[in-house]
Simulated scan of single mutants.
Amino acid sequence: MTTTTASGSGGLLSGKPLRAIAAIILLVNGMFPALWILFTSLKTEGELTAKPITWFPHAPTLQNYMQAFSDQPLHLFLFNSLMVALLSTMLTLLVSVLAAYALARLNLKRRGLILAAIIAVSTFPLVTLLVPLFEIMRTLNLLNSWTALVLPYTVLSLPVCTLMLVSFFEGIPRDLENAAMIDGCTRLGALFKVVVPLCAPGVFTAGILAFVNAWDEFLLALSFNSNPQLRTLPVGIQLYQGEFAFPWPVISAALVVGIVPVAVLIVIFQERVVSGLTAGGIKG
């Protein structure tokens, strides 16, 4: 009887209550910083520094958002970030689709070694690549241009996107491609007309990962572009800080504006992203 009770108790702790607690912890950990930034952006400087701390704004104001656009060219930062992220995402998807298809379908020698190399490259810290990438961009005379960011962002996103798509392509029957090629398609035609549409969740997921990586990146954007007209959003937001002042409400408003495009993108493609992540996890 004692053994049964202990077993039942252990099962209870490892069942729904434990999963619910874990879900709550993850939700709080993910949502609390975003909500805190949102509430801060709606507060005045006086309310933010008042004691005791107020969790919710007593008199919400949009003045911080207007000041965020007037103090700095926030619209220009958004445009630069959007263009760099879109261009790098499109280039990443094109190259990763071709690379993943080659790894999944072609009888490549040392395929395992190639996959191991891709995994190894993806683990390199970004700071260790900064100087070599800077020297390459300077030699190619690409500094102070969108290209100086698009190319490195593509390279940095390729390993993860390629590995993700390999698992999807391996799950597509070869007979479908063979049938398309019998009907007159080339191998590339079969890839883009048959395989890629069937792997749409994985392609969307890889694209969003590449977009978010490019949208959030700060170190390369700060190092490769000194032209004020080419600053991206992460670099532009630091300009709100003064020598002796740190206007948190205005900075929070700029952060909220920067979060919105990514949040909208994820909401629009939520089902495809979730199915892509789960399917990729099962196939991997």
Rank of each mutant, 00 (worst) to 15 (best):
T3K: 13
T3C: 07
A6T: 13
S7V: 13
S14I: 01
K16V: 05
K16C: 00
K16S: 03
I21A: 12
A22C: 02
I24A: 13
I24G: 05
I25N: 00
I25C: 05
L27N: 00
N29Y: 02
M31N: 00
L35H: 01
G46F: 04
L48I: 04
T49G: 01
K51H: 08
H58P: 02
H58M: 13
L62V: 15
N64P: 14
N64T: 15
Y65E: 14
F69Q: 12
S70I: 11
L74D: 11
L78E: 09
L78K: 07
F79W: 11
F79P: 00
N80C: 07
S81F: 02
A85F: 04
A85C: 05
L86P: 00
S88V: 01
L94I: 10
L94C: 08
L98K: 02
A102N: 04
L106G: 00
N107I: 01
L108M: 13
R110P: 00
R111H: 06
G112K: 10
L113N: 06
I114Y: 04
L129Q: 12
L130Q: 05
E135Q: 14
I136L: 15
T139A: 14
L142N: 05
L142P: 03
S145W: 11
W146V: 04
T147V: 14
A148S: 15
L151E: 07
Y153L: 07
T154I: 04
V155P: 06
V155K: 04
L156G: 08
L163T: 10
M164K: 08
F169Y: 12
E170C: 02
L176E: 01
E177L: 02
E177S: 05
E177D: 07
G184Y: 07
G189F: 05
A190T: 07
V195C: 07
A200H: 04
V203D: 14
A206L: 11
I208H: 08
L209I: 15
A210Q: 09
F211Y: 15
N213T: 12
A214N: 10
W215T: 04
L219D: 05
N225E: 12
P228Y: 10
L230K: 14
T232W: 10
I237V: 14
Q241M: 12
Q241P: 02
F244I: 07
A245R: 11
W248T: 14
V250F: 06
I251M: 15
S252C: 14
A253F: 08
G258W: 02
I259G: 05
V260Y: 05
P261I: 05
V262G: 01
A263W: 04
F269K: 03
E271W: 03
R272I: 02
G276P: 09
K283G: 02
K283S: 10
G284M: 13
